[in-house]
Nucleic acid binder design. Structure first.
Lengths: 111, 111
DNA sequence: TTGAAGTGCAACACTGTGGTTGCAGTTCAA
DNA sequence: TTGAACTGCAACCACAGTGTTGCACTTCAA
């Protein structure tokens, strides 16, 4: 992950059930891909690909520990995303409220 | 949209650049699919499909107005999603902090 | 030092999704 | 009442994503 992930990229990473399954596990304890493959109903290779996506999105960290690679979920990144989405949601509502009151004012003028 | 959209569903809806382009426009002013197709570099049919996805995810509302259907972005839904993600992010960090301090305590014991 | 347990890489299949075009149907307004 | 501007539906294409399997390579521990 050289470049910072974009908003759509992060959302896309979170837009898959299997990846949520993985994240849910990693939010409870750090695990390797093989360990995840043991508890989830998909192959290790599928897990690895998902972990790549999550890592690219900055949602997990990978740490080599001897022969295994241990992954952990990054709550702070999710919090940052949440903050962004909240900001945008507020902006939408503000703009649309302004439009609505403008429309009502126009209505009044026509009456 | 009969059932409430799941978290992965909402995230998947937000995981596409074109849909963000649409949402950005709809966050500024309400527009019809045809109007969106005029300002975005994709066909009306593509827009319609995206609007279906966004509507299914509860991120936009549709209101028939005579011969057209006018869409609006729902900031409140985005805020709700943001709140959910924030909650989950906090839970991850809490659990992993607990694990880490436990590991350090074990380390101390071994020294 | 050998076997078990990891990771890494490649090839492949299947499906979903994002996109297109074309045409039919509806609705408004001149 | 006719044409312009919408929506609605269907067929189709191309590609990316999700998943699989198989095999080679590394690393730890008995």
């Amino acid at each position: 992950m050289t470049t910072t992930p974009t908003l759509p990229e992060m959302c896309a990473a979170l837009g898959d059930q299997t990846r949520w399954d993985i994240l849910t596990r990693l939010g409870q304890e750090t695990m390797s891909a093989s360990a995840l493959a043991r508890v989830l109903p998909v192959s290790r290779q599928a897990i690895v690909k998902h972990l790549d996506v999550l890592s690219e999105a900055g949602l997990v960290t990978a740490e080599r520990r001897g022969r295994e690679i241990v992954y952990a979920a990054l709550g702070s990144r999710l919090n940052a995303l949440a903050h962004e989405l909240d900001r945008i949601g507020n902006a939408w509502d503000t703009r649309l409220r302004a439009l609505k009151s403008l429309a009502e004012a126009t209505d009044d003028g026509r009456r």
